[in-house]
Amino acid sequence: MIQQYIDSGVLEAYVTGSASDTEVKELLRMKAEYPEVSVALQQLEADMEFLALNMAVTPPAHTWDKISDNIDEIMLRESRELQQFKQPEQQQEAPAASGPTYIEVEGASSHMRIHKAWRWVFAAVFVLGKIFLACAIYFYLENRQAQKQLIKLETEIKQLKR
C-alpha cells in the first residue's frame, strides 16, 4: 500500500509544487507516519537539487550588492515607519557645549495612571465633601433663622419699652 502511494506520482507532484492542498496534507501525514515516504521524498528533493546544479547559472558579481542595497532600503523604510509609529513627534535638542545637560522626561501623553488603591481615597473625599456641604447648608439656614428671631425679639423689646 505504501509502495503504491509512493509510485502514484504524488510525491513528484509535491516537489514540483503542483500537488493540490489536499494532496499536500495527505503527503505530510504519510511522511510523518511512514519512514519509506520520508526517504522517497528525500530522494526526490535530491533529484531536484541535482537538476538545479546541472542548470545553475552563476549570477553577475554585482547582483548581491544590488540585493544588499534593496534590503538596506527596505529595512530603513520599515525602521522609519516603526519609529514614526512609536514616537510621532520627538525631537531632541543639541546638547550644550559645556555645563550640565537636561533630558526631557515628560511623556507625550496627556493622561496619567495611578494605583487602584487611590479610588477609595477619592471616594472618601467625595463623601466627606458631600457631608461638609450638607452641614454648611444646614448651619447657614439655622443661622438665618436665628438672625430672624433675634431681629423679631429686638423689635418686641423696643415695643415693650415704649
Partner: peptide, 20 residues
Amino acid sequence: SVKQAAQELYTNYGAMLLGY
C-alpha cells in the same frame, strides 16, 4: 541577521535559482 540569512541562502543557492 535577516540580511545575513538571505546572503547565506544567496551564496548557497543563488546560482541554482538563477538557472531555474
